[in-house]
Design a protein around this nucleic acid. Structure first.
Length: 555
RNA sequence: GCCCCAGUAGCUCAACGGAUAGAGCAACGGACUUCUAAUCCGUAGGUUGGGGGUUCGAGUCCCUCCUGGGGUACCA
């Protein structure tokens, strides 16, 4: 249950009651925000709504706060309500309720924290969408982690989520890919040909050419560049999927750009744009989209002058047009900083086609830099001098990649510390968090080794869980639903990473003082605590899973 | 030039217009015959880039300037 929603409802009802009794003047009640105060002395939940309403009510905020508190019907999960100057209202959870969170966790298991704000609405998240012209880079990796984590969170929030990858298998870049492989192939067979600056320079192109030589010898010398591009993109795409699999990222739909051509959808989009009067042609034969009508700086070319081929914008517009037609309630595009400028233009195009684009949210993230031993690595995407996802996973493993790519606001850059990421110590948040789960597992191992029944904690007396630190962990656990909600409504999945760390901190402090297998712990208390650690293990695993990370039994 | 992002503790970063701006690392001082010290407890550290404004209340909103990063293709 989302307690803050329930409290919000209670506050609203209290205000309405005070209004109808004539104690408060009648006004439209503004949005009531229930917060989780940082300071424990301010309770578990708090609201500043009395302060916000002071002007509307033309009354002192402290007086309004008291009226709300007096009219608030106290649910059984709340033990205390305080009014604090200048007009805050603080709510404290009842200890019995907090103890009962153990049962709630064990009952819900891997679904703990699940909420139904999505109501099974259809959501589509497009992420990674790297061109099949090279390996997945660390920049794309970040988009992948952000997109996949948001997908997991939205599933936990009751959405029907489709993970989609726009597979760019047409156009000039693919042409360049084919030529690059062809030239390398010819070079390997002794021909004197050279790459131009527009071609792909990476070693992986040579590797692909070498495979072709190994398989076919010189039999492909008369093949067109298309042959080479078809081969290369299939092979690169397969490798991209394998790379993403290493960090637990999988897509439900690969949407091929080529399909936009073969289905006629691209032509249809162009026709409708023309019918709607948003396209004009210049003397050189280029066709322009009148994006200035929607506030753009200048109009944009959608059909090139020389060969009459579409620029990337037209298929992008046709693709998003199709997204609008496919009936998604919400569409999220996860883009890197190199694509952020294009996004508005695409949405303008969709609007020109007659669709409202409010259902689309563009989530732009900033770049990733690497540092090792405190020294930042210099990378340049041009010349193929970049670090790939595979190299990163080879060096630091999957879990640190997932965590560090996530644990920053998308608006901030990530400075990925390669030295820290592989460090097995409390300095490394990845191990700090996972170790909490390992410590739980350790208790159950020792319990079994001591010869006790594995399920001895069934029906344990949870009212014995009175240690402040145990209760603090349970309070923190109960915040998971609100964190999931926050991540979804703000499109900011990084909050779950910070929550995971906070959860681990409250765990470790409890673990320090609340022993199970210790001679001076009474048997009843030991059973209650075993129950507690069973719940803790469940929550920790749940949160790690939401982040796409593993929950190890031993480290 | 224009657009986007950032500027918060020595460093890396949080903070849904609210209470004394928080964590981690680094620094300093403590705690292991322990269910894993891969941990815990404590101390210190700030004019939230500058200047205006809105508000009962601004790191957060508005204007302006400065600095850094990214983008500004008939490539995607």
């Amino acid at each position: 249950m989302l307690l803050h929603r329930d409290i919000e409802y209670g506050v609203r009802t209290a205000i309405e009651k005070a209004q109808s009794a004539g104690d408060l003047p009648v006004f439209d009640i503004p949005e009531i925000r229930i917060e989780r105060p940082r300071d424990l002395t301010h309770g578990d939940y708090a609201t500043a709504s009395a302060l916000q309403m002071a002007r509307l009510a033309r009354m002192a905020p402290i007086k309004i706060a008291h009226l709300i508190a007096d009219n608030f019907v106290v649910p059984d999960y709340i033990s205390d309500i305080d009014v604090a100057p200048p007009g805050f209202i603080n709510f404290r959870l009842a200890t019995k309720y907090v103890q009962g969170i153990v049962d709630e966790i064990l009952h819900d298991g891997v679904d703990f924290g699940r909420i139904n704000i999505g109501n099974n609405k259809k959501a589509q998240i497009e992420f990674v969408s790297a061109n099949p012209t090279g390996p997945i880079t660390i920049g794309r990796t970040r988009g992948g982690v952000i997109g996949d984590t948001l997908a997991r969170l939205m599933e936990a929030g009751g959405y029907d989520v489709t993970r989609e990858y726009y597979y760019n298998d047409a156009g000039r870049q693919i042409q360049m890919l084919g030529e690059s492989v062809q030239i390398r192939y010819q070079q390997l067979l002794g021909k004197e040909v050279d790459l131009t600056d527009d071609h792909y320079q990476g070693q992986y192109i040579v590797d692909i050419a070498q495979s072709l030589v190994a398989e076919h010898g010189d039999a492909l010398l008369d093949e067109s560049a298309d042959y080479f591009s078809d081969y290369a993109k299939a092979r690169i795409s397969k490798q991209q999927k394998a790379s993403l699999d290493r960090i637990n990222i999988h897509h439900d739909v690969y949407y091929n750009e080529n399909d936009l051509y073969s289905s006629g959808r691209l032509q249809e989009a162009l026709d409708v744009l023309q019918e709607n009067g948003y396209v004009y042609e210049t003397d050189d034969g280029a066709k322009w989209l009148r994006t200035t009508a929607f506030g753009d700086d200048k109009d944009r070319v959608i059909i090139r002058s020389g060969d009459g081929l579409p620029t990337y914008r037209l298929p992008d517009i046709a693709y998003h047009w199709h997204k609008a037609q496919r009936g998604f309630d919400v569409v999220i595009d996860v883009f890197g900083p190199d694509h952020h400028a294009v996004a508005p233009q695409v949405l303008m195009g969709v609007q020109m086609l007659g669709f409202d684009t409010d259902f689309v949210h563009t989530l732009v993230h900033q770049i990733v830099n690497l540092e090792r031993d405190g020294i930042q690595l210099r990378m340049s995407t041009r010349r193929g001098d970049y670090v790939t996802l595979d190299e990163l996973v080879d060096e630091v493993d999957s879990d640190p990649v997932r965590y560090f790519m996530l644990a920053r606001s998308a608006n901030s850059g990530v400075l990925f510390d390669l030295t820290l990421a592989i460090e097995h110590s409390d300095k490394n948040p990845v191990y700090y968090i996972q170790n909490a789960h390992v410590r739980c597992a350790g208790i159950f191992r020792k319990w079994a080794e001591a010869g006790f029944d594995a399920d001895a904690d069934d029906g344990a007396d949870l009212s014995l869980l009175t240690h402040e630190r145990e209760l603090a962990f349970l309070r923190k656990s109960a915040e998971l639903s609100a964190v999931i909600e926050q991540c979804i409504t703000t499109f900011e999945p990084h909050h779950i990473a910070f929550f995971a760390y906070e959860l681990a901190t409250t765990f470790h402090t409890a673990y320090e003082e609340c022993r199970v297998l210790h001679s001076d712990v009474p048997h009843d208390l030991a059973l209650a605590r075993l129950r507690f650690y069973r719940a803790a293990k469940t929550v920790l695993a749940r949160v790690l899973n939401l982040m796409g990370m593993s929950a190890p039994e031993v480290m």
